[in-house]
Nucleic acid binder design. Structure first.
Lengths: 224, 224
DNA sequence: ACGGGTATTGAACAGCCGTTCAAGATTATT
DNA sequence: AATAATCTTGAACGGCTGTTCAATACCCGT
């Protein structure tokens, strides 16, 4: 007599939970954590409100579950990119790989229709002072951020700690605005620039950022 | 008989209104438009809730009033900076002035204690999809954004429209993250980088961005 | 076929939301 | 001094918030 796996049947039980998770993403992205309501989410998922609290404990539990689902994928891609970068002995070419290890995993989110929303959620969480209390970034994103700054420091051995971190945050900010954009780029450029064409965005931004790191005028920031 | 000006006496009547306006800024900055409540604001201002609707019509009216108070100052400073840049005939040095015309008026907000909040409000409005409906950016910020992209285009006459706009948004994004930061920079750098030291931030970011524009590898973005 | 744990449901909860209202206080004009 | 206009106040409004609860439906191992 073969003992079957003790796990409950996966299909029907997790289907509702997964449906809630999927429905929550665009709602949080569009409205933000506070303006998003559990009723909007439950209606989008086609389930009664109570089911959200049953499966995720609270609204914030559901919010956190989205990050726990999505973040590891991005972090793994970044770590993989950094591994490739470290294999490149020429530091001038390595920094190019480091920048792309930061940017590409996030930009590729814009492509896939369902997870473009997660990029917006990240940005809104980043610009929310309350996020420090939630600690999502500290738990899920900071470790890889440390790896990235370390990789930058390796590419420019003579840089100060400050220079490394300002470089990192300059890149991070440039990356951020792409996830933020709601059509303003297209409006300002009369439709020439489409912010959801992430491949074009990555090319332009990486070209500027890599050149900026390589050629920055360090004499201006020597004293500070 | 000289007819006196019909305007009501300014001092006492506007004092409560001004107090509300001042109290609203930090509340909107900390909580965002939706999580900020008129009661939080009225308590901070020391006035009854009803007074907010009396003076500003609605919560959104108060929100918009903040922008109408603060935005013109920043825009005027940017326009003045662009005027200085246009007086510089050497294009290589002019781009430096253009970048600073964009960044410095905003960064200086971080310095003055009361208006550091406005920077945060801007970022949260920028990352809110609902902002397109409000149209605040379209009305108050886009005109100067057009002037800035035009100034960039003048510095690099052979650039395509796309290249100009990606350059602008790369700079805009880098600038944005500084207003966003709630202490994460300090945490990641073990206290070495303080994001509210806006003068240091401006030096580092301008150095990277100007170098990035000057030395970007355009061969990578030629085809797109 | 039956018992037991899990999943689902609809209704209800107290609490807060932005806004409104009528009444009173204050200021300006005649 | 009397009247009109503006400002301020406290209480109340209906509506929506996240969460809880008891009751029901479902599926599994036996």
């Amino acid at each position: 007599m073969t003992t079957k796996p003790m796990k409950k049947r996966a299909e029907p039980s997790e289907s509702a939970k997964a449906r809630i998770l999927a429905a929550a993403e665009p709602v949080f992205a569009e409205w933000g954590f506070d303006a998003a309501t559990v009723r909007k989410i439950s209606e989008a998922a086609g389930v009664p409100v109570a089911l959200i609290n049953y499966h995720f404990g609270s609204k914030e539990g559901l919010y956190r579950a989205i990050f726990e689902t999505r973040a590891p994928t991005i972090m793994d891609q970044r770590i993989a990119g950094l591994r490739l970068a470290r294999a490149e002995p020429d530091l001038d070419r390595r920094i190019d790989l480091v920048v792309k290890a930061l940017i590409y995993p996030m930009f590729s989110l814009r492509g896939e229709s369902p997870s473009a929303d997660f990029g917006r959620i990240i940005v809104r969480e980043m610009s929310d002072p309350q996020s420090e209390a939630r600690g999502i970034f500290r738990d899920m994103f900071d470790p890889v951020a440390d790896m990235l700054t370390a990789a930058i420091a390796e590419c420019f051995p003579d840089w100060t700690v400050k220079e490394v971190h300002w470089a990192y945050h300059t890149m991070l900010g440039a990356m951020t605005i792409l996830m933020t954009d709601n059509g303003r780029m297209a409006r300002l450029s009369n439709g020439e620039v489409q912010s959801d064409d992430w491949e074009e965005a990555a090319l332009h931004m990486c070209a500027i950022l890599v050149a900026g790191l390589k050629h920055r005028d360090r004499s201006q920031t020597r004293g500070v």
